[in-house]
Nucleic acid binder design. Sequence first.
DNA 1: CTAGGGTTAG
Length: 634
Amino acid sequence: MQNRVRQVFNLMILFRRSFSSSSSSALQPLLPISQLCTNGRLHEALLEMVMLGPETGFHGYDALLNACLDKRALRQGQRVHAHMIKTCYLPATYLRTRLLIFYGKCDRLEDARKVLDEMPEKNVVSWTAMISRYSQTGHSSEALSVFAEMMRSDGKPNEFTFATALTSCTRASGLALGKQIHGLLVKWSYDSHIFVGSSLLDMYAKAGQIVEAREIFDCLPERDVVSCTAIIAGYAQLGLDEEALETFQRLLSEGMTPNYVTYASLLTALSGLALIDHGKQAHCHVLRRELPFYAVLQNSLIDMYSKCGNLSYARRLFDNMLERTSVSWNAMLVGYSKHGLGGEVLELFRLMRDEKRVKPDAVTLLAVLSGCSHGRMEDTGLSIFEGMIAGDYGIKPDTEHYGCIVDMLGRSGRIDEAFEFIKRMPSEPTAGVLGSLLGACRVHLSVDIGESVGRKLIEIEPENAGNYVILSNLYASAGRWEDVNNVRALMMQKTVTKEPGRSWIQHEQTLHYFHANDRTHPRREEVVAKMKEISIKMKQAGYVPDLSCVLYDVDEEQKEKMLLGHSEKLALTFGLIAIGEGIPIRVFKNLRICVDCHNFAKIFSKVFEREVSLRDKNRFHQFDRGICSCGDYW
DNA sequence: CTAGGGTTAG
């Protein structure tokens, strides 16, 4: 209705103008364009422009472009642009830059680019605006090519340019170029600028060079929430959870106020460490400070609760969300998958597809397939995979989906099929895929296929110690000690390190870490004594040490001793000492649990009538009365 | 006029 009135009003003005313009007196607008624009009367302002013709001038065009930009009014802006051309108004760099920014913000990147290309003189702002628009719309390589063009044509970047160019490097995985830019930064002393420094350290962190990132962080003359969050996120994404937590605490002690991005990254670290109490505390802070409850933050809360074993909290958060993104669904699906609840995974996946608000993405399908895998639903998994190939989900399987199927078939003991499946892959199998098959061969004692897979794997990934360990493990299980020694010798030659296995358990607000044959824990003697006592009771209840889990060629007594030294057994024993009766013992491990420890935990739960929850690298195991929720299937 | 950090994956 209001528009109607305005249109009529415009017509009235038009009439008055056409009559008055026939007189000789100069055209006098009722209000100048700039004032009409600031009052939100864009249509009238455009009308003035038409009437004034070439007299619109710098201030008129400036105001008009500003107003069009505010309203993202593409049509109107295009009319202003056309008018400039028609009246042969050759705007200065400033106005052309405004035009460029206008097109950029309206997502008309080709038009923005054209404006830039046609500029007789470009300045830092025009270059930077173009680069940042490309960068923000996900066209990082275009952003970088404009940056390169700028450098070639002697344009001198400023802190704005560097900040945005570096983010483009991060997103386009252009670390090499980023390092060159780093050189320029140092030369022109921009490297201590906080915005530039943040994107610089973020770039190194995302490329996995966390030491470099930390150095830049430490050298910043000032720190703020964003630069701290960048380094926290960097640690969290690399799984360096303690460092992330430490930096967060430092942020607090330096009097900074975390925002929702900071909390999202912190929660990633907390879910890695399974620190549910800290996670709840963070959740409380978020609620008490009434921080905006963005999806990003809720997604990380869902992830934290589910990875800490509290699926019902995760689901409640999920259900209460107003706007769920694909990440929300994925986080929830992964939660069910890690708990082996294949049925829940499929049910939620069905809901997701019915709701049609967000589309499944590659991660969704990965979560669903791994859900089938952990839930012992191989045939369902296979048929979903076939559906992907047929185009049922809008997602074509990539290497990771193939890998997931190989993992699934391998886990269920269908080693030959898994081996055949690898041959069906459109691209060469990655080390990850071969690695999961090798692991399956170890579990199901398929020495022949395992040997060929293992040899191949060592060829393409000689630096990964895990490959040698599993292969020699496989040889060990077949009693082929000579091969074991050869592989171990090979491993030594390549001087590779393997991620040491460790387990931890929370007690009175602190984490107690154990590694194999631990001698560092303050209560180690108590633990060792208790372990002796436990192992006797366990054996009476039917625990037989699975000596094939020992890699080394030593005598049986020695092997048994080594088995009892496994970190998860130590953590479990400590739990029995420290955790009050009737409370479930919750242990976490950074690697996969071994067969012997799994069996140990089952019998442990029966003998001591204690529920045990163990989260390993892959999934949760809930032990109760001698049975594990994974059904001995992991 | 132009700028930095974000959740899910095996």
